[in-house]
């Protein structure tokens, strides 16, 4: 028998390989993130001071929506070609295998957002002292988005009309991350401490790490039973 860690690694590497093979698709959420965030200056006002004050919110909402779009990558293709079935039949505890799939998803979809975010900060006139908080909050927050999103992706994976459904299921659950993430950046911009925000996001990350893979496995088992 093969060890659990080897199976997790194999799952992780497979998903990264697949993402690498479909490089074009990989860029879509990122481009979406850029475009959506640049709509705000056009829609609201290009005044740098005003933009700077709402930039944390814009960037965080943009990251949230981009993650939401990318959740389709997680299980949908696997479900359509039957590899999800074979995945669920792996003789290792599924909770951990799902966790490594989610981790791969974050590397593919979440991490690029964290890296691009400072660029958007510059374009939106984010105060200089807020960049560390921006990166930090996104670094802790985007994995939570992937973890919570996995539950929704698992529940909707077999559905033909799942596309519109997923945001309805998941967005309300994203609210705490949005609140703490955006306000961390805002507070940092105003020169205030952000320890509390970071602590909350960290705690929430651990909490979702414990809960979400379990719920996702239950959801996936349901979805293949259809």
């Amino acid at each position: 028998m093969i060890s659990l860690s080897a199976a997790m690694l194999a799952t992780f590497r497979r998903d990264l390989l697949l993402a690498y093979r479909a490089k074009g698709e990989l860029l879509n959420p990122l481009m979406f993130f850029l475009i959506v965030s640049s709509l705000f200056p056009l829609a609201v006002s290009p005044d740098p001071e005003f933009l700077g004050s709402i930039a944390p919110g814009i960037i965080w909402v943009g990251a949230l929506l981009a993650t939401l779009l990318s959740l389709d990558l997680l299980f949908k293709a696997d479900h359509d070609d039957g590899t999800l079935e074979q995945f669920l039949l792996m003789p290792q505890p599924l909770v951990f295998l799902v966790l490594s799939k989610i981790l791969a998803h974050w590397c593919i979809a979440g991490l690029p957002l964290v890296i691009v975010a400072p660029l958007l900060g510059v374009m939106l006139g984010l105060p200089e002292n807020a960049y560390f908080a921006l990166m930090m909050s996104l670094l802790l927050g985007t994995p939570i988005l992937s973890l919570l999103g996995a539950i929704g992706a698992g529940l909707t994976v077999g559905l033909k009309k799942g596309g519109m459904l997923l945001p309805l299921l998941i967005l309300p659950l994203y609210i705490p991350v949005l609140i703490f993430g955006a306000s961390a950046v805002q507070s940092a911009g105003q020169g205030m401490a952000i320890n509390g925000h970071i602590a909350f996001l960290g705690a929430y990350l651990f909490f979702t790490l414990a809960v979400c893979p379990l719920a996702t496995v239950a959801a996936l088992k349901l979805s293949v039973a259809r």
């Binding site: 697949l18 070609d81 039957g82």
Partner: peptide
């Protein structure tokens, strides 16, 4: 059981990109 079983379903379970 799973460690000793092979299942072949309706779908081949073959990844097109690989």
């Amino acid at each position: 059981f799973l460690a000793n079983t092979l299942y072949l379903g309706h779908q081949p379970g073959v990844k097109g990109a690989m």
